[in-house]
Amino acid sequence: MNQPLAYVHPGAKIAKNVVIEPFTTIHNNVIIGEGTWIGSNVTIMEGARIGKNCNIFPGSVISAPPQDLKYQGEDTIVQIGDNVTIRECVTINKGTVDRMKTVIGNNCLIMAYCHIAHDCIVGNNCIFSNNSTLAGHISVGDYVVLAGMTAVHQFCAIGNHAFVTGGSLVRKDVPPYVKAAREPLSYVGINSVGLRRRGYTTEKIREIQNVYRILYQKNYNNSQAAEIIEAEMEATPERDEILQFIRDSQRGIMKGYFSAS
């Protein structure tokens, strides 16, 4: 690494085979893992922890202070996993005292102009399409796909394998394995295409569909539906994951299409 037109603070810990293009600035207290490529005009600020074999494209700003008036300069971080691609002009802010960190898992693709705010926890193998925006304190599971221009309200949760269609406003929690669409955001089916791509069998997909049929299409409230699902359906990891998500929801889960106004 020998880039006379890039600035790397002496206190940054950069693996030997990291490539840093000209006009990039890397601040103190930054760690970057092996094989990572940092494009030109990238700013990586204090507290960034970036894994191996990542690609960060021009204009991105990683680990800037949170856009939160309660932030008082506490020592927080952004933690980015391995094999993550961050496209042009993405902004990822570091944490506050709530979680002390913002986390992006492994093998994620964050497309151009996305914003991930303070204290968000994003799982592995996620894809956020262009201009998707996460407010603060959001939890996103593994294999979540946000189509372009999706905006997620602070403190929301999105479950594993969920797919949210483009232009959506996510104001409530999105359970695992579902497709979410329409306005207001509603359950419109299972993410069967994504599940098949990841090796889920037809029988397993049907089981997940049956869980959501009780939850969303039988006119039960969430508590009633959860009791029926637990009593009448065989215990499986997927069934239990859905039930736990419903019970843990802080903002309430999104409505079914038939109950959406």
Score class of each variant (00 low, 15 high):
residue 1 M to E: 00
residue 2 N to K: 11
residue 2 N to G: 07
residue 4 P to L: 11
residue 6 A to E: 02
residue 10 P to Q: 14
residue 10 P to D: 13
residue 10 P to I: 12
residue 10 P to Y: 08
residue 16 K to R: 15
residue 17 N to S: 14
residue 19 V to Y: 13
residue 19 V to K: 15
residue 20 I to K: 03
residue 20 I to M: 03
residue 21 E to P: 05
residue 24 T to Q: 07
residue 24 T to K: 07
residue 25 T to N: 03
residue 27 H to A: 10
residue 35 G to P: 10
residue 36 T to K: 06
residue 38 I to A: 06
residue 41 N to E: 02
residue 41 N to A: 01
residue 42 V to Q: 05
residue 42 V to T: 01
residue 45 M to D: 15
residue 47 G to A: 13
residue 48 A to G: 11
residue 49 R to N: 03
residue 51 G to Q: 00
residue 53 N to F: 10
residue 53 N to D: 15
residue 56 I to W: 11
residue 59 G to Q: 12
residue 62 I to E: 13
residue 64 A to L: 02
residue 66 P to G: 09
residue 67 Q to A: 15
residue 68 D to S: 10
residue 74 E to P: 04
residue 74 E to N: 10
residue 77 I to N: 12
residue 79 Q to R: 14
residue 80 I to V: 12
residue 80 I to C: 14
residue 84 V to D: 14
residue 86 I to N: 05
residue 90 V to H: 05
residue 93 N to M: 04
residue 95 G to P: 02
residue 99 R to G: 05
residue 104 I to N: 06
residue 105 G to S: 08
residue 107 N to Y: 15
residue 107 N to S: 14
residue 109 L to F: 14
residue 111 M to W: 00
residue 113 Y to F: 14
residue 114 C to G: 12
residue 117 A to Q: 01
residue 119 D to T: 12
residue 120 C to K: 02
residue 120 C to M: 04
residue 122 V to L: 13
residue 123 G to R: 03
residue 123 G to A: 09
residue 124 N to G: 03
residue 126 C to G: 04
residue 127 I to P: 08
residue 128 F to N: 00
residue 129 S to D: 01
residue 132 S to P: 13
residue 132 S to Q: 05
residue 135 A to L: 07
residue 137 H to G: 04
residue 138 I to S: 08
residue 139 S to V: 12
residue 139 S to A: 10
residue 145 V to F: 03
residue 146 L to I: 04
residue 148 G to K: 13
residue 149 M to P: 07
residue 152 V to D: 05
residue 155 F to E: 05
residue 156 C to G: 10
residue 157 A to H: 15
residue 157 A to P: 03
residue 158 I to L: 11
residue 161 H to I: 00
residue 161 H to G: 01
residue 162 A to K: 14
residue 163 F to W: 05
residue 164 V to D: 13
residue 167 G to W: 07
residue 172 K to F: 07
residue 173 D to W: 13
residue 178 V to N: 07
residue 179 K to C: 09
residue 180 A to P: 04
residue 186 S to G: 07
residue 186 S to T: 02
residue 189 G to R: 06
residue 194 G to Q: 01
residue 198 R to W: 09
residue 199 G to H: 00
residue 203 E to P: 00
residue 205 I to L: 01
residue 205 I to W: 02
residue 207 E to K: 08
residue 208 I to A: 06
residue 208 I to G: 09
residue 209 Q to H: 07
residue 213 R to C: 06
residue 217 Q to C: 15
residue 219 N to C: 06
residue 220 Y to V: 12
residue 220 Y to E: 11
residue 220 Y to D: 11
residue 225 A to T: 09
residue 228 I to V: 15
residue 228 I to C: 13
residue 231 A to D: 08
residue 233 M to D: 01
residue 236 T to C: 01
residue 238 E to D: 07
residue 241 E to R: 00
residue 249 S to E: 14
residue 250 Q to A: 06
residue 252 G to S: 03
residue 252 G to C: 04
residue 252 G to R: 04
residue 252 G to P: 00
residue 253 I to C: 08
residue 255 K to D: 01
residue 255 K to V: 00
residue 256 G to V: 09
residue 258 F to P: 00
residue 258 F to E: 08
residue 260 A to Y: 03
residue 261 S to D: 10
